[in-house]
Design a protein around this nucleic acid. Structure first.
Lengths: 205, 205
DNA sequence: ACTGTTCTAGAATGGTCGGTCTATATCCTG
DNA sequence: CAGGATATAGACCGACCATTCTAGAACAGT
């Protein structure tokens, strides 16, 4: 009853992801996406109502892939394993990693906000991840204010490993083995809940 | 003999810096910069030959400000002090910090490369910072390959503190005090040259 | 007061962008 | 073996961008 589609949603999302990963949000023009897929620009609008919609879909796919790896480990109360899991994830899904790791979602949608459906999916993914972080903290045991505990966990499990991996993602080469060692060392030396020493216990020498 | 200038280079650089810090590179259009300064668009071209030139100048000003703080401390062999110095720097010069901390220089110049003069200044600043890192490593004493030592130092002194500070820079509020404590704790727990335990000594439990 | 240079001022230009429109091809269903 | 829904295909549109251009204003030295 219908003509079969030659280009799938995924094609366009992947192209947009790659373009943003390589050249920033500005590089992902509708024409560039279409050219990369080999489709006419008009075809994109059969699947996405706007440029924001593609970018949001790309963000959801990337962030969802990340959450799929991280959330189970966080909920299991394994912060160290979660941090280390970022490494193979980034290596296997380099484009999505680069897409996520260099751009704040804020700058992705400078002009038009993404459609409601996608905006809600974004928020759901973010709150899912956030909840997993809180679950992990609750299991491991916290030390200070909830705000500080969360900031601490996000740094140790997410931002710090990312900071370690990022230079190697931007360069072409593979991620060196010492990156994993640095993450492991960090988690051995700096506990998520800074151990029971009286007070805060984290003033440095 | 000449008409006095009403808008200085600095005016335009500051406006461009603020726009990029707030909305990403795409927000810093020539018209937006001019509007923010209150000047006509044409006036910008009396001081900068192109948009890339302003962005490069803004980058140089921001990175130069950062280097001015970091380089002396690195050359003095004080990695901990350097890392902690990022905090007041970011707080006092929020816009420059945000400009630098959320965007890779790569994505700033998607289309046209900046003029030669500015490109060389960028490279000079970067190699100056790089040299300071190496000097610091040499003083403190290294542990592994030069490549790993450098990656380690950059993480501990620059990227990790940045990762700690970034969420608070993107939010509006002040940087909480526990951010400084986290940086201090990190440096107390994870030495730049991982202490003399046999071999690499950084495998975690 | 005049001159010449350097600036402001903002309209004009050519190119590209996101998004729409019309025409045509494809292929499942009946 | 049609009918018609859904796709491709790409020209087209108005908006906006970086950059250029023309006109006039301001000031230093005479």
């Amino acid at each position: 009853m219908v003509r079969t589609a030659r280009y799938s949603e995924e094609h366009f999302i992947d192209a947009a992801t790659a373009l943003v990963a390589e050249g920033g949000p500005g590089a992902a023009t509708m024409q560039a996406i279409a050219r990369r897929v080999g489709a006419p620009t008009g075809s994109i609008y059969h699947r996405f109502e706007s440029r924001s919609a593609i970018l949001a879909a790309a963000w959801n796919a990337s962030y969802g892939s990340l959450a799929g790896v991280l959330v189970p480990l966080l909920q299991a109360g394994s912060p160290r394993e979660a941090a280390l899991a970022l490494l193979p994830w980034a290596e296997e899904d380099r484009q999505r990693a680069r897409f996520l790791l260099q751009h704040e979602p804020v700058t992705l949608f400078e002009d038009a906000p993404p459609p409601e459906r996608l905006r809600q999916e974004m928020e759901k993914l973010e709150s899912e991840m956030d909840g997993a972080f809180r679950t992990c903290i609750a299991q491991v045991g916290a030390g200070a204010s909830p705000e500080e505990d969360l900031a601490r966990a996000k740094f140790l499990i997410f931002d710090a490993p990312i900071a370690i991996i990022r230079p190697h993602l931007l360069a072409k080469g593979a991620i060196p083995t010492f990156a994993g060692q640095m993450i492991a060392e960090l988690h051995a030396a700096v506990p998520l809940a800074h151990a029971g020493k009286r007070g805060a216990g984290m003033r440095a020498a």
